[in-house]
Design a protein around this nucleic acid. Structure first.
Lengths: 131, 131
DNA sequence: GTGTTTGCAAACAATTTGCAGAATT
DNA sequence: AATTCTGCAAATTGTTTGCAAACAC
């Protein structure tokens, strides 16, 4: 299963590299269409899955039912706003020790952890106080 | 929006209370059908959502695309097997301090955290070594 | 030329919803 | 009697897949 070059895939990677908001497949689709007007959503999904599989990007499942994608593959924490659904990076240093602790108390093999924080982002806290 | 009693809802709660494997809506449906042969999947979904909303059960989104439900609503860690998809509790004490740290470095409001570990469970590690 | 990738549309899986009738208070 | 809840089926949403043509090597 050799990889062949594809301009669409490049375009998807480039787009993702410019974004820090962890876009969904649909948002990537919209964005890439600027430069590739007739790229199809299926192609976007196929390439995002492929890129995630070979480790060039990261698939984020933050519990809102939609997959988000991150160009930054290093382990780090995310925040998810329950109100607007936005996903942001946290500046908190990643605690890899927790994974080690988990390994020690578990009989199977632990490969990694996924942690995300949820609540109300700064923008939403300010605007929508009175509910 | 007053709650009325419903035997179906009771049955769903009872079923969930007996299980420690964090079943999906579909599994709950199968299980409750033993005692309620013509309960509908829609009713199961509606009640699971309702129970989760009022805090009597917990909805778990562990990244496999399917919602799992947990009768134990106290904060604790989960493990998800990438092979068989099973979800187990971890005996590791929950580190609430991490949430506090996150609060301090974030401008919005953090309400909680969700952490799950992934890898290969004990059963799968033993059986499916040669891939 | 062989094999991968694309666009399109149809298929799929999980979940939600509209509605008329049944159950609860 | 008023209102919530149920069963059913249809609708929605996010994602995957089959296929013939297009592209990359």
């Amino acid at each position: 299963m050799n990889l062949k070059h594809s301009r669409q895939r490049d375009s998807i990677k480039e787009f993702l590299a410019t974004r820090k908001d962890h876009p969904t497949a649909d948002v990537v689709y919209m964005g890439v269409r600027q430069s590739f007007p007739n790229i199809s959503l299926g192609t976007v999904y196929r390439n995002l899955t492929l890129l995630a599989d070979i480790g060039e990007i990261m698939r984020l499942r933050v519990g809102d039912g939609v997959d988000h994608f991150d160009y930054d593959t290093s382990p780090h924490y995310h925040f998810v706003c329950s109100q607007c659904g936005c996903v942001e990076d946290l500046k908190l240093p990643f605690n890899a020790g927790l994974t080690e602790e988990a390994k020690e108390c578990f009989s199977g093999e632990i490969e990694g952890q996924m942690t995300y924080f949820y609540g109300c982002c700064a923008d939403c806290t300010g605007e929508q106080m009175p509910v």
